[in-house]
């Protein structure tokens, strides 16, 4: 299965732009994992950790974000956050 294109952008810079297996995003109405082919969603995020799984079954890399929102569309997952560190 093709990988999910994941982009994490803050006003200061483009933090991540890479192809990954899965990303778990802390939406305001619950966390959800986005993989390639996910249905289009747009959600506001809670402040918390975005977990990036590079490959299936690998240890997640977590990035703390605050004040963000996420959009999943055909092109992949885009997380826009006011600040990100991790």
């Amino acid at each position: 299965m093709a990988d999910l294109h994941f982009e994490l952008v803050t006003p200061e810079r483009l933090v991540r732009s890479e192809d990954v297996y899965m990303v778990v995003v802390p939406g305001v109405e619950g966390e959800f994992g986005a993989m390639a082919g996910h249905a289009p969603v747009m959600t506001v995020l809670k402040d918390g950790a975005v977990k990036v799984y590079k490959t299936a079954g690998s240890q997640p890399e977590s990035i703390n974000v605050s004040g963000g929102f996420a959009e999943v569309n055909d092109a992949g997952l885009t997380v826009l956050a006011e600040s990100a560190e991790g």
Partner: peptide, 25 residues
């Protein structure tokens, strides 16, 4: 941009709530 290409976008919470959070940003 993204809107026209993917008509069936699911919004969490609904559009108005997102807009309310988004517009000041």
């Amino acid at each position: 941009a993204g809107g026209a290409a993917s008509p069936a976008v699911e919004y969490e919470p609904d559009e108005e709530e997102i807009l309310k959070a988004l517009l000041p940003k």
